[in-house]
Design a protein around this nucleic acid. Sequence first.
DNA 1: AACAATGTTCAGTC
DNA 2: GGACTGAACATTGT
Length: 279
Amino acid sequence: MPELPEVENARQVVERALDREIASIDDTDEFVCRPHGPGEIDHALKGGRLTVAHRRGKTMWCDTVTADGDEGPHLGIHLGMGGRIFVTGPSGDAESLYAGGDPHVGGMPKKAGERPDKPEWDRFRMTFADGGELRLFDKRRLGRVRLEPDLDALGPDAAEITRDEFRARVGKGTAPLKARLLDQSVLSGVGNLLADETLWEARMSPSRPAGELTVAELDALRTTLRKATRSAIKKGGVHTGEVIPHRAKDETCPRCGAPMERGTVGGRTTWWCSAEQAE
DNA sequence: AACAATGTTCAGTC
DNA sequence: GGACTGAACATTGT
């Protein structure tokens, strides 16, 4: 679930947790909260508040202030392969918001907004003095929470990258085009489904060497990527893409009817239209 | 049982 | 050193 669009939606949910006093934190999952020891994040943030929620690619982080009003550490949150963010209002307020994404994935309850009935899949919890909480719900446990996340290895955000940056960063090398789009140091935020959706919309072969694209093709690809990304944010996740339901055996291209083809590109399962995206 | 799952990272190769 | 590939990571569902 969590690619750029889901993380942007999650970031907006995290904004509901800003400016509320942090009463306590459960950071005892040592895999998710590594390299911190149990209690370390709790100690660093207890009594303070989150003040701003940022995002670059699939990484989120919050600015914080301490109880005294001084600048606090940054709190990084990554949803990994299947994490979701839940934020509840002050106690008595029944509202529970969570980041979008495919409702059929990740052990989610049937009704949107309902709390998942698997507390053991909560990997991190921040409880506020007003009785509400922020939780990272992550069945697969590949999400991460840490202080002072390192953003240096991330390329420009896929939703913000300029035309010239895109031309220079994506349009080079011998790696398959899809592998290039998935490389978070080239540009950040594109995941497996958004890559398949974008390449399908652009009618480009995922396995074509990235360096072979013309400038016109690169510009068109960037335009398509922005459109697919904006659409996914608006509709609630990358699973709302047009070709996504057709990433399956015996499926056909929703545009031309040709069989969908499956293979591995950039180390990930890849589906493409056998006619329109032929090499 | 073996495999795949919307992600990242590290070891290994050229 | 850079570019690139594939396995490993933790866990669950099919």
